[in-house]
Design a protein around this nucleic acid. Sequence first.
DNA 1: GGCTTGCCTGGAGTGCACTCCAACTCTTTA
DNA 2: TAAAGAGTTGGAGTGCACTCCAGGCAAGCC
Lengths: 155, 155
Amino acid sequence: MTVTQHAVPELEETTDHCASAERPHPRPDGQDRYTISEVAAHTGLSVHTLRWYERIGLMPHIDRSHTGQRRYRNTDLEWLTFVNKLRLTGMAVADMVRYADLVRQGDHTYPERRALLAATRQGVLRRIGELHDALTVLDFKIALYSDAPKAQERH
Amino acid sequence: MTVTQHAVPELEETTDHCASAERPHPRPDGQDRYTISEVAAHTGLSVHTLRWYERIGLMPHIDRSHTGQRRYRNTDLEWLTFVNKLRLTGMAVADMVRYADLVRQGDHTYPERRALLAATRQGVLRRIGELHDALTVLDFKIALYSDAPKAQERH
DNA sequence: GGCTTGCCTGGAGTGCACTCCAACTCTTTA
DNA sequence: TAAAGAGTTGGAGTGCACTCCAGGCAAGCC
């Protein structure tokens, strides 16, 4: 449960200027120039986190508008979706940066990328095992508390 | 932490220096007076963490030797084993402290303990789902890197 | 022109879960 | 008797992954 949370997706500006940016969902290639807050709404990451990801090298180069504002593309959205999956696996951010580096370096890094993902996969399997294990204990305890509310036991 | 030691001079010295501290495994009740480093070896937690757990109220009262050193019992080992399981579920330490509190308060807290564990259980199930999800993506990517080492794709 | 909104930056701050430190006591071994 | 080794404490430090802040810029609206 330590996966962090952030804000609610809530409906932001249903009040005034309704015809404005009310679309966290992808647009077809060619019209895909999302502001940072659109991307935040779409990915569930905060704008802080998006900028931080860029700073630490977890993002490819992001286009800018003529005033210097970020304009994300569909490929950036896809990358972030994948990053989110990696995050869910519990992969350390440093490892994700390493992976992003490998992607930047080109196709000859396929084996190393594959190895990185395979190691992550192993970790996920181990974690699932641990969780199943913990689940058994939880079920046992819960049954104790449910079935014998007056029984004598310790914790 | 001003509880200090009282009573319980008992037979502690029988287990102190007889066998060198090379026994991370439980002994029968009655001879169960483990030093902190024995408990660390048994549980996989560091001695720092064991003392910290005590400070924050995650442990019941731990007996002391006549010189003020901790002497853990089998029940303490069992509790730590359970705590480790809760840790594996991803439960926050603050919640574990809350649970420990409920245990201290007595049997009338059964319903709340049960609720806490049930919520944790839900979290574990959700987490397992996420991990399975991530596994699918990982397998897809790994297959890409394995089967088509020269294929044209992005990340 | 003034106000609001959204975005920009580098750097500082936060919360969690440890992890370590200095200075001490006590016991055992050389 | 001296040194080593394991334990004690309160408090400070660490690493991670964000999260926020101050100060500023650009655009839209009344």
